[in-house]
């Protein structure tokens, strides 16, 4: 089973499949929970974009750093974050990965190199650049990856990061997930030129890839990761993908005029990264179908366990609301 000539081992292909399905099923659960009014805050779903997080994070260890976005569940799970503790966090419970202090837009687990989701569009770019500086000083081959959207590509800090990372040859990979929308504005209405080519004047290698093809993502990340680990500097990857859900789940309550055609959404659904990958695996090895079904069943159970864990977790103690503002209390 070579999956498009990638020569990836079978176990690796199945693990990529498993992680994409895990992200998808967890988020479908969250969509139902949101519709049922079970979630205290907003959720921004990553459905349709799973191949990007998985294709990149399969190259990373827990010691590498990632920064993520408000649409961050996929990065958290792809990097090895615990689905049950993420679920509890989004439910606002004490056993959440951030104790209920952060919620969906701030899921983080520093012990796994997940600096976290970020509620500020573009907010993770500078953080990842700083983590890359720390990694460079440590000199042990660690790298940092900043995931950000096409919306964030219009924040000036991206240019600042490209400049410094190139000057200092930082082990940084900038991964732009171009999902077609900057909140509710179609990308073409707010973004000029090519995002990938914004790296060119800084001398930073860049590639524009099919973000719905997990193997293409894996291959592009492979080149960028090697370059970063070898101390040769940063890269930019623009992964073209599509946000099949809305910007934020509860937008049905305030969006009165549709901002996109259903036909466009359907066309992208036909290019769904998980369906495409599963089809490819089956075509190359019909015998894999049973294994995929077993993975699907195991993931369903993981999601049910995550929900049980989250539902059974207590709410945080209101007396703890002041939280951990300072490490050294005043």
């Amino acid at each position: 089973m070579a999956a498009g000539g990638s020569n990836l081992p079978r176990e690796e292909l199945l693990e990529m499949y498993r992680r994409m399905v895990l992200i998808r099923r967890i988020e479908e659960q969250l969509a139902r929970d949101c519709a049922a009014g079970k979630l205290p805050g907003p959720v921004h779903l990553y459905i349709g974009e799973e191949a990007v997080a998985v294709g990149v994070c399969r190259h990373l260890s827990e010691r590498d750093w990632i920064t993520s976005t408000h649409r961050g569940h996929g990065h958290f799970l792809a990097k090895g974050g615990d689905p049950a503790r993420m679920m509890a966090e989004i439910y606002g419970r004490a056993d959440g990965i951030c104790g209920g202090f952060g919620g969906s837009m701030h899921v983080a687990d520093f012990s796994k190199g997940i600096i976290g989701a970020n509620g500020i569009v573009g907010g993770g770019i500078a953080l990842a650049t700083g983590a890359a500086l720390a990694a460079q000083l440590d000199g042990d081959g660690r790298i940092a990856v900043a995931f950000f959207g096409d919306g964030a590509a219009n924040q000036g800090v991206l240019m600042e990061a490209l400049n410094v990372a190139s000057l200092w040859k930082l082990p940084l990979i900038l991964v732009c997930e171009n999902n077609g929308f900057s909140e509710f504005s179609p990308t073409a209405t707010v973004t000029s030129g090519s995002i990938a080519e914004r790296a060119r004047p800084f001398g930073v290698p860049f590639r524009e890839i099919d973000g719905n093809d997990v193997i293409a993502v894996w291959q592009a990340a492979d080149v960028a990761v090697r370059r970063a680990r070898e101390g040769r500097g940063p890269s930019l990857i623009e992964a073209r993908t599509y946000r099949t859900r809305g910007h934020v789940e509860y937008e049905v309550t305030f969006i009165t005029e549709p901002y996109r055609d259903e036909a466009e959404v359907d066309a992208w659904r036909a290019r769904d990264p998980i369906d495409r990958f599963a089809r490819r695996l089956r075509e190359e090895d019909p015998g894999v179908a049973d294994e995929l079904a077993a993975i699907d069943a195991a993931v369903e159970e993981t999601v049910r366990a995550a929900v049980r864990f989250a539902e059974s977790s207590p709410e945080p103690d209101p007396a703890s609301a002041r939280g951990h503002m300072f490490a050294t209390a005043p």
Binding site: I125, A126, L127, G130, A134, A135, V157, E160
Partner: peptide, 23 residues
Amino acid sequence: VRDTPICEALISGMAVGAAAAGR
């Protein structure tokens, strides 16, 4: 000890990222 370009949006955030990563 590093001279940076004039880019406060980046350096103030790099401080956070580098500190989070152990510096």
